[in-house]
């Protein structure tokens, strides 16, 4: 640069810029932080005089929960309900942290989470709201006809790395799953992996849609998606569902509503709503509505399976 002065000025400016750069990681941390929502801790789960209800959690339950809220509001025009996703873990944490009144969950609550609630002096109450199966999807080009629970476990823990190991083509396995906040992730780990750890190189996705895209793109891809969601992707032929058998030799079953309800389909689960303490006020009315025949009709309409 021309004069020493000018260079000094530029360098001083640079220093300032570099200094600002220090803030970046912090911003990353902040953007990742849970945004505090309106209800204060005292109001959670207890009588809510304002009629405000914050529901948060499972992405699987999100569309169902949104429709329930919508219908419920038609009956109770004063009710003010917000429903958001983010994953079961997120919902339960929000419940414990007091930023939600109801947690949508696609898995049963963990002991650790129960303890955290107890540490804060409350207990968590559980209400089953629907049933759901988990559809295993693979790429339409993959000729595999059926899969057993053991094989699924092998694939997702990393023992099985090529489809030829289970009678398929010579094609590397690309396993897609959800992120750790997802209830489906946790449920699948508990039921299918027998609580073993997922393979380290599983692609971790923040949505069911992203899983479907992965599987659509990768000939060796495999993914798990809740049945109500999976319809959307299997219908268009982007991915295909595989029948699942409990063991080799036993019949492989497709996740139809009947098969899920009668327990023949191996990977099915209950979906829950959780509250802090016994539900009261608007929360109670909402949960009563959800489990009523009217609420359960919506369950069926959306492709989930009703409680009874």
């Amino acid at each position: 640069m021309g004069t020493p002065d000018m260079r000094t000025a530029i360098i001083t400016r640079l220093r300032a810029g570099l200094f600002a750069l220090c803030l970046l990681p912090i911003l990353a941390l902040m953007t990742g932080c849970p945004a505090p929502t309106s209800p204060s801790p005292e109001s959670s789960g207890a009588v809510d005089p304002s009629g405000l209800l914050v529901i948060k959690g499972s992405d699987t339950l999100l569309p169902l929960s949104q429709e329930w809220a919508q219908e419920f509001k038609k009956k109770h025009p004063n009710a003010n309900i917000t429903v958001t996703g983010g994953g079961t873990g997120t919902g339960i944490v929000a419940l414990i942290n007091g930023t939600a009144n109801v947690a949508n969950a696609s898995r049963a609550i963990k002991d650790a989470e129960k303890k955290q609630a107890e540490a804060k002096g409350t207990t968590i109450m559980e209400v089953p709201v629907a049933r759901d199966g988990i559809t295993i999807v693979i790429n339409p080009k993959n000729p595999i006809k059926e899969i057993t629970l053991d094989q699924l476990k092998g694939i997702y823990t990393g023992q099985i790395n090529n489809w030829k190991e289970i009678g398929g083509p010579d094609q590397e396995v690309v396993a897609s799953g959800r992120d750790t906040a997802s209830g489906t992730y946790a449920y699948f780990q508990e039921e299918v992996l027998g609580e073993e750890e997922y393979r380290q190189d599983m692609i971790s996705n923040v949505s069911n849609n992203a899983i479907a895209q992965d599987v659509e793109k990768n000939v060796g891809g495999i993914g798990y998606i809740g049945v109500a969601y999976a319809h959307e992707f299997t219908r268009t032929g982007k991915v295909k569902e595989v029948p699942v058998a409990f063991k080799t030799g036993e019949p492989a079953i497709l996740p139809t509503p009947e098969n899920i309800l009668n327990g023949k389909y191996p990977i099915s689960r209950e979906l829950f709503n959780y509250t802090l303490g016994l539900p009261q006020g608007i929360t109670k009315e909402y949960l009563d509505y959800v489990t009523s025949p009217e609420g359960q009709a919506i369950v069926k309409k959306q492709g989930f399976i009703t409680l009874k």
């Binding site: 990742g32 932080c33 849970p34 992120d179 750790t180 906040a181 923040v206």
Partner: peptide, 13 residues
Amino acid sequence: ITATIAAEMGEVV
């Protein structure tokens, strides 16, 4: 590191 923070910060107690 950043992706891990972004993905997990929302679900921690």
